[in-house]
Computed example of a mutant assay.
Amino acid sequence: MKQKKTKDTITENIVWHNTVVTHEARAKLKNQKPVLLWFTGLSGSGKSTIANAVESKLLSLRKFSYLLDGDNVRHGLNKDLGFSDDDRVENIRRIGEVAKLFVDSGQIVLTAFISPFASDREQVKNLFEEGQFLEVYIDTPIEVCEQRDPKGLYKKARAGEIKNFTGVGSEYQPPLDPDIHIKTLGITIEECAAMIIAVLVDRKYI
C-alpha cells in the first residue's frame, strides 16, 4: 500500500534556492531600504485609507512600494478563509509570507489588516530581519469606528448577522509598543501619512 506523504516528509525534501540577484542588489537599485509597514487597527480605523495615502507619497518620492489590503487579498489568495480565529491566524500567516517575498524583492511593503491578535503580529515580525518590520498602530476609538462604519459591518455585527467580528464578538489586542503610533482623532489623513513618511525619512528607509 502506498504510504501517504506527511507535511514533514514533503518539507524535508524542499531546499531553498538561492538566486544570483541578491536582496541587497535589488534594494541598491531601488535606492531605498526595504521594509514592511504592518498597519493594524480596528475595522473603520482608517488603516487602508492612511496606507493608500502613504503609498501615494512614496510614489511621488519615486520610491518602489506595494500595498496589500485585507479585503483585496481575500478576493484571491485567501478567498478560501473565513473569519474564525483559526482562519484569521492563517490569513495573517499567508500575508506575512507574501510580504516577506516582496521585501526580499527590494520593495517597501504596506499591509492593511485588522490582525487582532498580538501573537500573530509577533509571528509575522519574526519572519523578518532586524529593521525590516515596522508595526504601525492606527489608533482610533471603537466608538468612532462604529460611527463611521463605512461598510456597515458594525451594524451587522450588532444585529448578530456577522459572527466573530473584531471589537464586537471577537477581541482586538492593541499593540503595547508599536514602532509607529498614529492617534487619528483630530488630525487629517494627510497629516497621518506625513507622520509615517517622516519616520521613514528619519530612520533612513527612504
Rank of each mutant, 00 (worst) to 15 (best):
114 I>C: 09
101 L>M: 13
25 A>H: 04
116 P>Q: 13
40 T>H: 11
91 N>E: 02
189 I>T: 03
79 K>L: 01
19 T>W: 07
138 I>C: 04
94 R>D: 00
117 F>A: 15
193 A>Y: 01
44 G>Q: 07
180 I>M: 09
52 N>R: 12
169 G>T: 07
123 Q>S: 15
200 L>P: 00
62 R>I: 13
119 S>H: 12
130 E>T: 13
199 V>S: 00
183 K>W: 01
127 L>A: 06
187 I>M: 13
88 R>D: 03
44 G>E: 04
172 Y>A: 03
57 K>S: 14
74 R>I: 02
197 I>F: 07
8 D>E: 14
155 K>N: 09
113 F>N: 00
192 C>M: 05
19 T>F: 12
48 S>C: 07
46 G>P: 15
74 R>M: 06
112 A>G: 07
199 V>H: 03
42 L>V: 00
95 I>C: 14
126 N>M: 14
116 P>H: 06
161 E>C: 12
73 V>C: 06
54 V>H: 05
111 T>V: 02
149 D>F: 03
17 H>S: 07
99 A>L: 11
179 D>H: 09
53 A>G: 03
125 K>A: 13
106 G>T: 04
105 S>F: 08
33 K>D: 09
50 I>L: 02
16 W>K: 12
197 I>K: 00
154 Y>N: 10
185 L>N: 15
126 N>L: 14
55 E>N: 10
122 E>F: 13
38 W>E: 04
38 W>K: 05
183 K>T: 13
150 P>S: 08
168 V>G: 01
54 V>A: 10
118 A>S: 11
63 K>D: 10
17 H>Y: 08
2 K>R: 12
82 G>P: 06
44 G>A: 07
192 C>G: 03
20 V>P: 05
30 K>W: 05
28 K>S: 15
9 T>H: 11
63 K>S: 13
174 P>C: 01
193 A>L: 01
90 E>T: 14
118 A>T: 06
128 F>G: 04
13 N>V: 07
8 D>V: 12
142 I>K: 10
66 Y>F: 12
47 K>T: 06
67 L>T: 05
28 K>G: 10
146 E>I: 01
129 E>R: 12
184 T>Y: 03
105 S>P: 04
102 F>D: 09
177 D>Q: 13
71 D>W: 15
160 G>N: 02
201 V>M: 09
128 F>E: 03
76 G>M: 00
180 I>Y: 06
63 K>C: 15
143 E>W: 00
129 E>K: 14
114 I>G: 02
23 H>D: 04
164 N>F: 08
87 D>Y: 10
43 S>V: 00
33 K>H: 09
36 L>T: 04
162 I>R: 09
138 I>V: 14
164 N>A: 12
81 L>K: 11
123 Q>P: 11
121 R>H: 11
28 K>L: 15
195 M>L: 13
25 A>W: 00
25 A>M: 12
99 A>C: 07
65 S>F: 10
133 F>T: 05
180 I>S: 00
132 Q>I: 05
